[in-house]
């Protein structure tokens, strides 16, 4: 019984980790797009800051955020190649501000909960 639990734990952790990161990724993408970037460089910037995201997730996410009016995009030539540049729209800036406040609220709530002595161990 304990053997199977040990085997399942990495999967459980991985699933929970991905679930936790999913919401944070949107925040990270919006934050990174305060300066204009195209998909490939955006991915690299996020990876450099420890928020790795695969292209299969990033590009559909960018499209969704653009369709929601949070991003603006533009095709432009750079280094002799056409690239699509994204940047935060005014609505996106507003939403990012609200989301960051929400994020900080969650963070401080979690801190408060963690400061309380654990009920199970006392």
């Amino acid at each position: 019984m304990s053997h199977s639990t040990q085997n399942e734990t990495p999967d459980v952790f991985e699933n929970l980790r991905l679930e936790l990161r999913r919401g944070c990724l949107i925040l990270a993408v919006l934050a990174a797009l305060r300066t204009e970037q195209y998909g490939y460089t955006l991915r690299k910037v996020l990876a450099e800051h420890g928020m790795e995201i695969d292209e299969g997730t990033l590009y559909p996410l960018l499209r969704r955020l653009e369709s929601q009016g949070l991003l603006k995009s533009q095709w432009r030539e750079e280094d002799k190649r056409n690239k699509r540049f994204y940047r935060l729209s005014p609505e996106g800036k507003q939403i990012l501000k609200q989301l960051l406040a929400e994020w900080q609220g969650i963070d401080s709530s979690l801190d408060e909960i963690l400061k309380e002595p654990s009920h199970g161990t006392s």
Partner: peptide, 13 residues
């Protein structure tokens, strides 16, 4: 549109 963007991303990689 999607293929152009994907193409650009893969070529960069």
């Amino acid at each position: 549109d999607i293929v152009a963007e994907l193409s650009e991303d893969i070529r960069s990689q």
